[in-house]
Write a protein that binds this DNA or RNA. Structure first.
Ligand SMILES: NC(=O)c1ccc[n+]([C@@H]2O[C@H](COP(=O)([O-])OP(=O)(O)OC[C@H]3O[C@@H](n4cnc5c(N)ncnc54)[C@H](O)[C@@H]3O)[C@@H](O)[C@H]2O)c1
Ligand SMILES: NC(=O)c1ccc[n+]([C@@H]2O[C@H](COP(=O)([O-])OP(=O)(O)OC[C@H]3O[C@@H](n4cnc5c(N)ncnc54)[C@H](O)[C@@H]3O)[C@@H](O)[C@H]2O)c1
Lengths: 205, 205
DNA sequence: TTTATATTGTTATTTATTTAACAATTAATT
DNA sequence: AATTAATTGTTAAATAAATAACAATATAAA
């Protein structure tokens, strides 16, 4: 089953907001209610839900719990995937603190740095290893995903290291465009570009 | 002139990479060279450049300096736009340190927090004010853009505060979907969604 | 000078995504 | 029991974005 990227993004957001609804005791929800939560259209919601093959109940809406579980089945693996952070700088630290415990199926289990002063200890309960140890730790700790928060100039070598170590999913914050083999999924996030986009639109208004 | 959002994003990236090329002494560049830098196709580059009305020289390529300046004219205002950060937490701090001095036309000039222990001092040379002072400071410091790095539960009220203070461009990191009046441009970045996208694709491969 | 090659600018085509339309039908109401 | 209103699931249409195609032509090579 092929799902559009945009649908995946929205599924992630549906789930997060559905969990909030569930915790408030809501058992069923209509497409227009989900749409309101995310400020999109009900049609879009229904279409996304159709694409993942879920069926709501006519005039009762969608079963919140069941929908959450199904989205979980699509996004996550059963056992979950382990994540590592490359570069314990300002951003790396913020991400570790933020993500810790937030997503049980996406656990940050290790961090890697080249600065000897940072390695060999814990940061927010996460072990910080020397980047040399990457390949070994990826294997022993069963790490599937890497987050790149090293400086621009170190991003390419870090990405190659991750790929060589067997990582197949990368989230890159370094703003350095990376060219990776086809079997590795790469998601780039460029904060300067986001901010410049805001600048452009703010100017235009 | 209307420019697609995706084109704006790429223009931002073209400029960043062109500045590097320029600093290496390159005066002219071909569409396929720009494409290589970003790992996209030359056609895409040419089309984007066409859309902004720039003309290269046949068989000589684009004048690097002139292209940088033109992109600057599109993205930035002449005097630049001032930016504030809402919430001096882990992420807010990282962003301030990262952005300081990086983009002369997008200066972070102030930060706002509600925690009295954080306000009334400088962080990385940026003054930290009480959030109550927002409206006043937006006026006196001529702030046009706000970056939201407050907790999820505080995001909506913070956005409203920004809008009431006269801000017309917002970059939101809180993962809380915001519903703002049409005259305000909103860019949302949701890190969990990015990571879950990686998780999905990593699982699928 | 002539020819060949490389490169731009732009239109046409394809692909991806969103939005609209609406039939089917269930639950609530009369 | 019949009627009404609301909501889903899905196909069709519209919009947006990326890619392909190619004519025009400047430069380099013959
Ligand atoms: N700070 C932010 O808010 C922010 C925002 C957007 C993007 N970024 C990007 O994220 C990256 C990191 O930013 P930062 O502010 O945290 O920088 P930083 O300098 O604070 O941290 C970089 C860390 O990477 C480590 N490092 C260097 N080379 C390494 C290598 N080869 N392997 C492993 N670790 C290595 C350094 O020792 C340091 O701890 C940069 O590329 C930056 O462009 C940062
Ligand atoms: N840390 C990360 O890497 C990260 C990544 C992605 C998204 N986020 C999002 O960014 C936001 C901040 O994350 P964080 O880790 O920096 O959190 P944090 O708790 O470290 O910081 C939040 C800051 O906001 C301040 N604050 C609270 N209410 C406020 C208000 N009404 N006005 C102004 N300031 C206020 C707090 O005093 C605190 O300093 C959250 O919404 C989080 O979801 C964080």
């Amino acid at each position: 089953m092929h799902l559009p990227d945009k649908t995946i993004e929205r599924l992630s957001q549906y789930r997060r907001n559905l969990l909030i609804s569930l915790s408030k005791g809501k058992t069923h929800i209509f497409s227009h209610e989900i749409a309101e939560l995310l400020h999109i259209t009900p049609v879009q919601v229904r279409r996304d839900i159709m694409l993942i093959g879920y069926n709501g109940t006519l005039r009762k809406g969608y079963d919140v719990k069941a929908l959450i579980d199904l989205i979980g089945n699509i996004i996550d693996t059963e056992e979950g995937q382990n994540v590592c952070v490359m570069g314990l700088g300002n951003l790396g630290k913020a991400i570790i603190k933020y993500l810790c415990g937030k997503r049980p199926k996406l656990k940050i289990v290790a961090c890697f740095d080249t600065n000897k002063e940072k390695t060999g200890r814990l940061y927010a309960d996460i072990p910080v290893f020397d980047a040399e140890e990457l390949t070994e730790k990826v294997k022993t700790m069963n790490i599937a995903i890497g987050i790149i928060t090293v400086p621009f100039e170190r991003a390419s070598e870090t990405a190659n290291r991750l790929v060589n170590a067997g990582i197949t999913g990368i989230l890159n914050f370094s703003s350095k465009p990376l060219n990776l083999p086809g079997h590795v999924y790469l998601e780039e996030y460029d904060m300067i570009t986001s901010l410049e986009k805001v600048a452009y639109h703010t100017k235009e208004k």
